[in-house]
Amino acid sequence: MPKAIRVYEHGGPEVMAYEDVATVEPGPGRVRVRQTAIGVNFIDIYFRTGAYKPASLPFTPGKEGAGEIAALGEGVTGFQIGDRVAYAAGEGTYAEEVIIPAKDVVHVPEGVDDATAAAMMLKGLTAEYLLHRTYKVKPGDTILFHAAAGGVGLILSQWAKHLGATVIGTVGSAEKAELARAHGCDHVILYRDEDFAARVREITGGRGVPVVYDGVGKDTFPASLDCLSPLGMFVSFGAASGPVDNFSLGLLGQKGSLFATRPSLFAHAGNRATLESMAENLFSVVASGAVKIPVHAKARLADVQQVHRDLAGRQTTGATVMLP
Rank of each mutant, 00 (worst) to 15 (best):
K218I: 00
A198K: 15
G215Q: 03
G242I: 13
T220S: 13
R207E: 15
F196P: 01
V244G: 05
S224K: 02
H187W: 03
V244P: 01
G217P: 01
R192I: 00
Y213P: 02
F237V: 04
T204V: 09
E194W: 05
S241I: 11
V211N: 06
D214K: 06
T220M: 11
E202A: 15
L190G: 01
V200Y: 09
C227D: 07
F196L: 12
P230E: 14
Y191Q: 08
D219T: 11
V216P: 00
D193R: 14
F234T: 00
V211P: 04
I203C: 10
E202P: 02
K218D: 08
D214P: 04
F221E: 00
T220L: 01
E194D: 07
Y213I: 10
A197S: 15
V200K: 05
V209G: 04
A239H: 13
V188P: 00
K218W: 01
R201P: 01
A198P: 07
G242V: 13
P210G: 07
V211C: 07
G232F: 09
G232R: 07
L228K: 08
V211S: 08
F234R: 00
D195M: 09
G205S: 11
P230G: 11
E202D: 15
R207G: 00
P222S: 10
H187R: 02
L190H: 06
G205E: 13
P210Q: 09
A240H: 04
Y213A: 07
S236P: 00
R201M: 14
A239I: 05
R199Q: 15
I203K: 03
A240P: 04
L228A: 09
A198R: 11
R201G: 09
R199F: 02
S229M: 15
D214S: 05
D219L: 08
L225N: 03
R199E: 15
C227P: 05
A240I: 14
V211I: 09
G205I: 12
D193F: 00
A239V: 10
G217M: 06
V212L: 05
L228I: 09
V200E: 13
R201F: 02
G205M: 12
G217D: 06
F234K: 00
D195G: 05
R201Y: 02
S241M: 13
V216A: 12
P210R: 07
P243N: 14
G238F: 06
R192H: 13
